[in-house]
Amino acid sequence: MTEKKYLETHEWYSLTDNTITIGISDYAQGELGDIVFVTLPEVGQEFSKGDSMVEVEATKTVAEAYAPMDCVVVEINSSLDSEPEIINSDPCGEGWMVKAEVKNLDDSGMLYQEYENFIS
């Protein structure tokens, strides 16, 4: 698995072979506050880079997570249906949202240091 990379829209992704795992950053979960509901895509659903992939409902506001590159969903984290708060407690680990097969590799995300500079 490659090192996590981050997008300006606060998603992270990591690459294993030809599959990416996608979630939202610790900064994003902190800004959203308590997450109470997540609408995940379906396995097999195709996304182009920048498409809205996941809807994250928090007590403060609602936000979307966008596809970091063209991809097809191969697995979703179903435990988020009953325990969306995992995203708050472990956004970059157990709180992953989607695994997807890469259709068009675009590994242009920021490394953590660069992302940290971006958010501060």
């Binding site: 506050g33 308590d34 109470v36 007590t59 403060k60 708060e85 708050n88």
Partner: peptide, 8 residues
């Protein structure tokens, strides 16, 4: 203040 340890 909006929250400290979390709204919930």
């Amino acid at each position: 203040p909006f929250s400290y340890k979390g709204t919930i």
